[in-house]
Nucleic acid binder design. Structure first.
Lengths: 96, 96
DNA sequence: TCAATCACTTGCCGATACGGAAAGTCAAGA
DNA sequence: TCTTGACTTTCCGTATCGGCAAGTGATTGA
């Protein structure tokens, strides 16, 4: 019953995005990009992968100054991330 | 001081190999292959990556029947794995 | 109003990585 | 010695990754 690792979430950058979003609830694009330390395009593409898996919701509230992109995990994103973390914890359970 | 994830170890199959070897100390090639559920060639290639990083030691004791390959983490492999697990634990620390 | 700017997004690379099938290697067994 | 078992390597098609450059759309400044 070893839950498998989720490929969408396991990729280092996406794992960090999910872990970050779990802890802050919602974050701006630029904050996520700086946290990862990669370019805009790389950030955008990883977010897109998470969005297409329905793990992340993207909001671009317009009308209040510059359009900033806000990111947030969806309920299923939280579930998927929790399941992945469980799989990881199980895997590394016996480690020193 | 967020320790970075180790790319060599992070790949799902290699993470499983390392986690397995940490727990059993040493294992036969075929056991590792069956644990992963992949082909011989895939197993061989992942082990080679770990070996070239000096994380895994390969022994092929000859003279006692069929040549079986035994795998074992090296001291530096244990250290690298431990560091990776620490990085993971840190990353997923705030998860529900 | 309309060009410039900001905040991304997409297209286009080249470089790797991954996995399986098939062929190759080599010690042991018949 | 011919075969077999146990991997290893090669071949090959696909997928991913990252950065740069060009493109898009809302907003702002002249």
């Amino acid at each position: 019953m070893t839950a498998a690792l989720n490929e969408v979430i396991h990729a280092p950058n996406r794992l960090q995005i999910c872990a970050f979003l779990i802890s802050v609830d919602r974050a701006e694009f630029s904050v996520v990009r700086d946290m990862l330390g990669v370019t805009d395009s790389v950030t955008s593409k990883h977010i897109k992968v998470l969005e297409q898996a329905s793990y992340v919701q993207i909001a671009k509230p317009t009308g209040q100054g510059r359009v900033k992109t806000w990111l947030e995990l969806t309920p299923s994103g939280r579930l998927a991330y929790a399941a992945h973390v469980e799989a990881l914890r199980h895997l590394i359970a016996e480690s020193p």
